[in-house]
Simulated scan of single mutants.
Amino acid sequence: MGLYIEAFIRADLDDLWTRTQEPSQHQRWDLRFTEIDYLPRTEGEPQRFRYATRVLPFLTIAGTGISAGEKERPDGTRTSALRFASRHPLSLLAEGSGYWRYVPDGDGVRFLTGYDYRPRWGAFGALVDRLILRPLMGWATAWSFDRLRLWLERGITPERALLNWLAEMAVRALTLTLAATALLKASSLALFGPFAPTMAFVYPLFLTLAICAALLKSPLACTPAARRCLRTPPTRAGAPRVLRTLKELS
């Protein structure tokens, strides 16, 4: 799989399964989707679904897919897999597949995903995907997994977590703007009078530290952060059996 994300979530396995498998719950925490709806199906068929992502206020890109899951496995783990595709002409993502694994571990669950997709638009699309879309998809998946973790572990709803993140980003951006502006105003040192020579060293150092803090400080505990998730598989991971079954059906 091209992308791998893993989060350790201290939560009950059934609760995690519900928050990730119920479309109404899933769309609340997953930044990649605006809407997820199950489509009617007959007994024995994989679950088909429709998804949509609002890219801009006036532009929504939709697609369809099929999914299947293994809720009871001999080793106590659970797995779900999906295949998806979008016919929207503006969707860079043409088709893809992926899986979720739920691995009980001590007082929590290792929740992990692996997925890949084929971009459209030929060589240009491949370049845009490598430089922009793929890094963005990896970040959005990891950020969403941590958002889900906060919901299950601390009761911070996805909507509140988003507000927390926006507020923290606004504070960081304001700090950067003010510090960078002040750093460029060398003439302001004259305001310190006889202490100007000392402040000529201390003042830029202080502002530089403020800029570094705004850029590098760890996110608050109540704020989702992609950096908290593992982005490289600890071992070589193969696609689960249920995903191979979906490929045969599609």
Rank of each mutant, 00 (worst) to 15 (best):
D146G: 07
R78Q: 08
M137N: 14
P119D: 02
G63K: 04
T53I: 06
G106D: 00
E45C: 06
P89A: 13
S91D: 08
T141F: 10
A62E: 15
G65A: 08
G63I: 04
T64Y: 13
E70M: 06
E70G: 01
L152Q: 02
S80A: 14
S91E: 09
E95A: 14
A81V: 07
S67K: 11
T64W: 13
G125M: 05
L148S: 03
G96A: 08
P46L: 09
M137W: 10
P89W: 15
L136S: 13
P57S: 03
G98S: 07
E45D: 13
W143V: 00
L56K: 12
R87W: 14
L93Y: 11
D75E: 00
W143K: 05
P158F: 02
L150V: 06
Q47V: 13
Q47Y: 05
D129S: 08
P104C: 11
R41Q: 13
D116V: 00
A52D: 09
A140P: 02
W121H: 11
R50F: 10
R120Y: 07
F58M: 03
T60W: 03
A94T: 04
A123R: 15
A68C: 06
G63H: 06
S91H: 12
G114I: 05
D116G: 11
T53K: 12
A62M: 10
T77Y: 02
F145Y: 10
P119F: 01
R134I: 02
G63Q: 06
V55R: 15
A142W: 01
D75M: 00
G106L: 06
Y51T: 07
T53W: 04
T64R: 12
F124M: 15
G44F: 04
D116C: 02
R73S: 01
I132N: 09
L56R: 12
R87C: 08
P89N: 12
V55S: 13
R110K: 15
